[in-house]
Write a protein that binds this DNA or RNA. Sequence first.
DNA 1: TGTCGACGACATGTATACACGGTGCATCCA
DNA 2: TGGATGCACCGTGTATACATGTCGTCGACA
Lengths: 222, 222
Amino acid sequence: MSDQGISGEAGKPRPSARERAYEWICTAILSGVFSEGQFLDEAALAREVNTSRTPVREALHRLQAERFVELVPRRGAQVRVVNATEMREVYQARFVIESDAMVRICERRLGSPPESGELLEAMEAAGRDRNWNELAQLDQAFHSSIVRHRGNAVLSEMYDAMRPRQVRLSVRTITEVPERLPTIEHEHRRLKAALDAHDGELSVSVLDTHLREVPELVRAFG
Amino acid sequence: MSDQGISGEAGKPRPSARERAYEWICTAILSGVFSEGQFLDEAALAREVNTSRTPVREALHRLQAERFVELVPRRGAQVRVVNATEMREVYQARFVIESDAMVRICERRLGSPPESGELLEAMEAAGRDRNWNELAQLDQAFHSSIVRHRGNAVLSEMYDAMRPRQVRLSVRTITEVPERLPTIEHEHRRLKAALDAHDGELSVSVLDTHLREVPELVRAFG
DNA sequence: TGTCGACGACATGTATACACGGTGCATCCA
DNA sequence: TGGATGCACCGTGTATACATGTCGTCGACA
């Protein structure tokens, strides 16, 4: 998840214990193994990943930075509960960053990101298979690719930092309201088309519609 | 720095070792005790803060999340070098978030943040005392208060995450070009005035001027 | 004289032991 | 019977020992 932060790519000689712990916990939270608000037991996690508490603790700190968990002093790591207010704020923040990206992309006539086409196809495939988890990840990847296409690493990083919160909600939303899927796919195609047409205003207005829906659903379902 | 992340306020029973380590390293980096690119010795830091390596390591991980340092595998924590490209990106990102905040504030006719007045006064005092470090912190606090006034915690958090990078550059800039100080103060007052006048367009245009200067200086001084 | 390779010092990554504080339950008192 | 209090268990916070990989140095060889 994210890009491990630093050390770039290069051949991965061997995943460190910390890395394994991070991946394991990350996946577990996203796939709902732990319920929201639950406290995680460091020792139990260490056994699960087959390592000691130290790497687990370090992984938990990283997960805190990415807002997966909350570290309560003397109590431990609590799976973060994302309430409706925060989700609205996340969607506002997404709109701020993503609309700016689209405007700049259109100003510079860059067109849609090169990978956007295959991402859309992959999403449609995932939708047909009703693989909601995969779908949510791809949705995030699609939007993230747009922000990255703008060419500002700082903004991209910020945008991607919201990923955990978004993916968790996306899965819930699409699971509860799968009939919205065609609409979502249509909007994605419109977004891509607007970028290819270098039409900043249009793309922002489509994005506005697109991002407005989810918070409304959140409100509807609590 | 930042807000310790989680546990909110409440009486602080005693700063943990990790917290002390974090504060110490943070201050050291901002005040230039360590040079950019330098590797930090965990054991030495532990001796300095009078604790063991474990809390120091955890502090370093947090500092990595906040982009103070870069954790190179098997090499340790390296004080991050912020290059010109990244600084330009930071200022673009600031503009994106801060201009949105100003527009929303004006739309809702909220006026300038209540604390902005005294922050400006404090900045002028710090400027008279030629206390550049303090000045840079206050400058950051002023802009941060505007973003916070918009009322979106996610955006505020993102904005504040850029703090280390900004403060380091601000100190350098104002130290090298102190004659720009009156201009900066004047622009701050204009920003506050524009917000109080609920004039979104004006505030954004002033902000644009204000944020455009620093990257130019960066380019000039390398 | 320059380059390659082995060795040693040292710093990080990991494991584990101990200290401290919190939580929950049982017990006691009103 | 309800609530306060003390104690025991348990989990995190910290310290420290050990394992492992990296860098620099020194010497041998071409």
